[in-house]
């Protein structure tokens, strides 16, 4: 039916196609713009609001007592760094090893189950993770602590690291593994010395994605790290964190605290943005080595 019509009125058919083509293009561009606009608005608004609160004191000094001008939240930046370090110390080994397991030995039913739970863990609300860490660490230790905060963050980080590691290793071509096995190299040596180095860029990406993911988390820290107005006092004591501090300052009635919260949000956002740019750089070189 369609082809005679085409033969009779080719110009019309072509015109219709062109219109559909144009319309779809406009639709896709509009959707992209709609997706990117909020990001640009957020970045722009935080930049405008946060820029004039930026100061060296913000990242080097302790909070000033209420009512006194100045001060900063250096303790929160140090605290966030410690929390991320604790989380990474737990999540990187567990996540990377799980990823290696899933990729290399996860073909069976147990692998599928594990993969399913990893995906479920990704979707667990972070406040719930905070409650879990509270029950496991805060209650028995009878204190809010950097350790429990880091532990909560690590639970959020593990699935990201595990799945990106798995994907990175699965992208290592079968023929590379076979080349190694065919040389008479043991399976474990092949995984450790051939497969993992080949997928390393992807594993590093996973680690960085994990860090980017947790550095802005607030909810899991509420009942774990708790926040603190002092420099860190060890892993078993409450500790400040940037997102927590932003939250506390934002709900306070003081305008200079609001200003500091905006500035801290700007710094946090730039750090995460920087991390993402670094991830892109790593993946790009990664693709080059794999090819």
């Amino acid at each position: 039916m369609a082809s005679p019509a085409l033969a009779v009125r080719p110009a019309l058919a072509l015109g219709r196609r062109r219109v559909v083509d144009r319309a779809m293009s406009v639709l896709f561009v509009a959707a992209t713009v709609a997706a990117v606009t909020p990001l640009l608005l957020v970045v722009g608004y935080i930049a405008v609001q946060g820029a004039h609160g930026l100061s060296i004191a913000l990242v080097t000094q302790l909070p000033a007592p209420v009512g006194e001008p100045g001060g900063g939240m250096g303790n929160a930046f140090v605290g966030s760094a410690i929390l991320i370090a604790v989380a990474s110390a737990i999540a990187l080994p567990v996540g990377i090893l799980s990823g290696v397991y899933l990729s290399e030995f996860g073909g069976g039913r147990f692998g599928d189950v594990l993969r399913f739970f990893t995906d479920v863990l990704t979707g667990v609300p972070s406040i719930v993770v905070g409650i879990v860490a509270y029950t496991i660490l805060v209650v028995p230790l009878r204190s809010f602590s950097a350790l429990s905060g880091g532990f909560a963050l690590s639970i959020i980080m593990i699935p990201t690291v595990a799945r990106t590691t798995e994907e990175a290793l699965k992208r290592v071509p079968l023929t590379i593994r076979e080349a190694s096995l065919a040389l008479g190299v043991h399976e474990w040596t092949t995984i450790l010395r051939v497969v993992i180095p080949t997928g390393l860029a992807g594993i590093v990406t996973g680690a960085m994605l994990g860090i980017a993911r947790i550095s802005g988390e607030t909810a899991p820290l509420l009942f774990t790290a708790f926040g603190s107005a002092f420099w860190q006092q060890g892993l078993l004591k409450p500790i400040a964190a940037v997102p927590l501090q932003i939250f506390q300052y934002a709900i306070s009635p003081y305008t200079d605290w609001h200003e500091q919260a905006w500035a801290a949000a700007l710094i946090l956002m730039l750090l995460v943005l920087g991390l993402n740019v670094a991830i892109r750089a790593v993946t790009r070189t990664g693709f080059r080595t794999v090819r």
Partner: peptide
């Protein structure tokens, strides 16, 4: 099998040098 593979060499269809 690992010992067998050490005395038999294999060259594959697509060149597959270790990329790293």
């Amino acid at each position: 099998p690992v010992a067998v593979r050490s005395m038999v060499g294999m060259v594959f269809q697509k060149p597959n040098p270790f990329p790293t």
